[in-house]
């Protein structure tokens, strides 16, 4: 089974891109499955069901979505193999501009919204920096010049990435993205494979449910901001 990880900021158009992508790949119905990693709620499962695509949704809740992703990804792969898929696509939302749910050797796509601002690619971090392909959405409504500037910002952070403009409504561009995904390799398990980048660090008192504010309640891994005196 081929595994592809797709990630991107919330509402960037991941689900639309994946739906168009699956449509474009022309694989038999039921042979491509999706696992959606989300935080609190999600309505995307309905859209996948409408398209007859097998879908599993997991909610990270109070856990960092990336930590949740790593602890469940191999189970997702096993589910995909048991279900007889030719391809499994995971969809996860980057929330803190520090997410990095990519695995060495596993094809990864970052979906990013061209309306999110020209400098956004420079702020997103490993989510964008370590992706194999960057799919830019909603570019049909901005000018050609802005597209080029946006692609330039992406290249600044990830010079290796292929940048593809995908229209999540008409599917324009998904064809080229599908072509890239043919490079994804077959896997049986992810055991002992490695993430491309560490997940956001945690384990402080607030991770474990602390709600009180103040130095005396802050324990574990903390990072303090520096305030320069005026």
């Amino acid at each position: 089974m081929k595994l592809i990880t797709i990630a991107g900021p919330p509402s960037s158009g991941k689900t639309s891109v994946i739906l168009k992508l699956i449509e474009c790949m022309g694989l038999p119905i039921g042979s491509v499955g999706v696992v959606k990693f989300d935080c609190l709620t999600s309505f995307d499962n309905l859209r996948y069901q409408e398209a007859n695509i097998p879908i599993q949704t997991g909610f990270s809740g109070k856990i960092c979505p990336d930590h949740y992703f790593v602890s469940n990804i191999d189970d997702a792969v096993q589910w995909g193999i048991r279900s007889g898929f030719q391809m499994l696509i995971t969809e996860s939302a980057g929330l803190c501009n520090r997410c990095s749910p990519y695995i060495n050797g596993i094809f990864s796509v970052c979906v990013i919204d061209s309306l999110s601002g020209t400098n956004t690619p420079r702020k997103i971090g490993p989510l964008l920096k370590l992706a194999d392909v960057v799919a830019v959405t909603k570019a049909d409504i901005i000018s050609q010049a802005e597209r080029e500037v946006f692609a330039f910002s992406i290249k600044q952070v990830n010079s290796h990435a292929r940048v593809v403009f995908v229209n999540g409504i008409t599917g324009q561009g998904s064809f080229l993205l599908a072509k890239y995904l043919q490079q994804a390799r077959d896997i049986q398990t992810l055991r002992d494979m490695k993430l491309r980048f560490t997940t956001p660090a945690a384990v402080c008192s607030y991770c474990t449910g602390e709600t009180r504010i103040g130095e005396s309640h802050q324990m574990g891994m903390m990072k303090k901001m520096e305030f320069k005196e005026l």
């Binding site: 409504i141 000018s143 500037v149 080229l176 072509k179």
Partner: peptide, 19 residues
């Protein structure tokens, strides 16, 4: 893939400036 995005510029009625 090499020519990605370098070959074609597009222009349509729906395009806007957003910056």
């Amino acid at each position: 893939f090499e020519m990605e995005g370098k070959l074609v510029a597009q222009l349509s009625q729906n395009m806007n400036f957003v910056m």
